[in-house]
Design a protein around this nucleic acid. Structure first.
Length: 440
RNA sequence: GUGGUCGUAGCUCAGCUGGUAGAGCACCGGGUUGUGGUCCCGGGGGUCGCGGGUUCAAGUCCCGUCGAUCACCCCA
């Protein structure tokens, strides 16, 4: 059999990378729980009509089909892999509304699938770490201010470059456009979103091609260029002289989000009135998160408020949430060797073997160490000690244990060796587990 | 899904206008008859992504395909 080749868009990490990924996922999870989000996992598939109902246009959904499915068997025909965690969550809320307490806050860390053309930082299978808060009938606006704080906490605790959460509000954009007499909001947003890439002149041109007047296009551009780290953006908007109730409502909400962030975590947030992205179910605040130095890879964490995602008859569950694109984050940092683990295995101690006859003594020492929670493995063979030490060195294992009448343990980084008892010895806390650190 | 660029040992790459594969690092062994990381000596490893075509002859040209990457689309 010839050597297998990778599958485009389905990244697989090496153990040392997976070690880092697990460490990151663990820290993110603990931060989510620190804020009281409850754990949840939903199935990988959803009925296709559910998936297509909101948001996703289509072709990007992977459909599930049995290999031997009968032509007439339609039982699985309408299932697709979820492309995010918000849509499945909305479904879950509706399904279990009677068993949940509202407001309901949950986190969900799972893989999602999208049938897109892969490139660096965009994959067909990737992890999302998602938090959402939903309430019944109405959702207080303060939750929209809380979300970025959680993300800021989760990400700033990691050994990664600084992040900035960019916020905007759909109501500001829609209200402003409406005040200008524009009704093709979606199309306008799409062009405005290209501002960074193609520049203001071309955006205006594209807008005019869409039927906007010179004046309208100019105003749209002026709004998009507003950006501020505090609530001063609101005055700048008002100076443009457009008035609309929805615009005012949006501004008020956005000011609140920004003010909260400025008070709690200065420097985390910036109001940027050009950002409009996210799936089309967003109705209020929207978030995007950029990694300093890696802006060209786009957002590593996005989300927003949605009022109509979870609705069934009279029941309405408005929500707000955000997702961290863990795989994207890791891939772009791995790509530049910006994340490293102090070792490639969990092992803290390698117990040397004097001779195969004496292996039981090594096995016993290892067992004693493990009883104290120290990850330990026994050397693969009774090779020369130099080779056994090298086995540890190659993997970054910090300690080698030499069993004997009185055991001794060597820190192979310093070369220091001391007599020790396997039943009581313990490494410094920081050596117990691999340490993940940033090098950027 | 559309279009462009790229694809030689584990890694970084060399290989002129086609003539039957090389370096550095890494790895393995020995010097060092049981405590590594230096140094010296030696060694293994590539169907040149894969498949087909042109040619006496292809890593080198052509087509396809897979993979990586970029742009569009869209988005974590």
């Amino acid at each position: 059999m010839s050597k297998p080749t990778p599958l485009s868009g389905f990244p697989e990490w090496l153990p040392q990378q997976r070690l880092i990924e697990q460490e990151i996922l663990g820290r993110v999870r603990r931060t989510f729980e620190l804020y009281g989000f409850a754990p949840l996992e939903t199935r990988a598939v959803e009925p296709l009509d559910q998936l297509l109902r909101k948001g996703e246009t289509s072709k990007e959904v992977y459909v599930l089909r049995r290999l031997q499915a009968d032509e007439n068997d339609t039982s699985d025909a309408a299932l697709g892999l979820h492309f995010d965690l918000t849509v499945p969550f909305a479904r879950f809320v509706l399904e279990n509304a009677g068993k949940l307490q509202f407001p309901f806050r949950r986190y969900q860390i799972q893989k999602v699938w999208r049938g897109e053309r892969p490139q660096e930082g965009r994959y067909r299978e990737f992890y999302q770490a998602d938090i959402d808060i939903v309430d019944r009938d109405t959702l207080p606006a303060h939750y929209e201010a809380e979300i970025p704080l959680v993300i800021g906490d989760a990400l700033s605790g990691l050994p990664i470059p600084r992040v900035t959460v960019q916020v905007n509000n759909r109501k500001v954009l829609e209200g402003f456009y409406r005040g200008l007499g524009i009704d093709s909001t979606e199309d306008v947003l799409r062009q405005v979103d290209k501002l960074d890439k193609i520049g203001p002149a071309k955006v205006v041109e594209l807008l005019k091609n869409q039927g906007l007047s010179e004046a309208q296009a100019t105003q749209v551009l002026k709004l998009a260029e507003i950006k501020a780290a505090d609530s001063s953006f609101a005055d700048q908007v008002k100076q443009l002289g457009v008035s609309d109730p929805l615009l005012d409502e949006g501004l008020e909400e956005l000011v609140r989000v920004v003010d909260t962030a400025v008070a709690e975590k200065p420097g985390l947030i910036v109001a940027d009135l050009r950002i409009a992205r996210g799936l089309d179910y967003y109705t209020g605040t929207v978030y995007e998160t950029l990694l300093e130095g890696y802006e060209r890879f786009g957002s590593i964490s996005s989300g927003g408020r949605y009022d109509n995602l979870a609705t069934a008859g009279k029941d309405v569950f408005p929500g707000v949430g955000i997702s961290i694109g863990v795989t994207r984050l890791l891939a772009i940092l791995f790509g530049r060797d910006a994340l490293t683990a102090s070792r490639s295995v969990p092992t803290c101690v390698l117990v040397a073997v004097n001779s195969e006859e004496e292996r039981p003594r090594s096995v016993a020492a290892a067992a004693a160490l493990r009883r104290n929670g120290i990850p330990t493995e026994v050397a693969p063979s009774a090779a020369k000690f130099g080779k056994q030490i090298r086995y540890a060195e190659r993997r970054g294992i910090p300690y080698v244990w030499f069993p004997g009448e009185s055991g001794s343990v060597k820190d192979i980084r310093s070369g220091e060796q001391v007599d020790a008892d396997a039943a009581t010895w313990a490494p410094p806390q920081e050596d117990l587990r691999p340490i993940v650190s940033g090098t950027a």
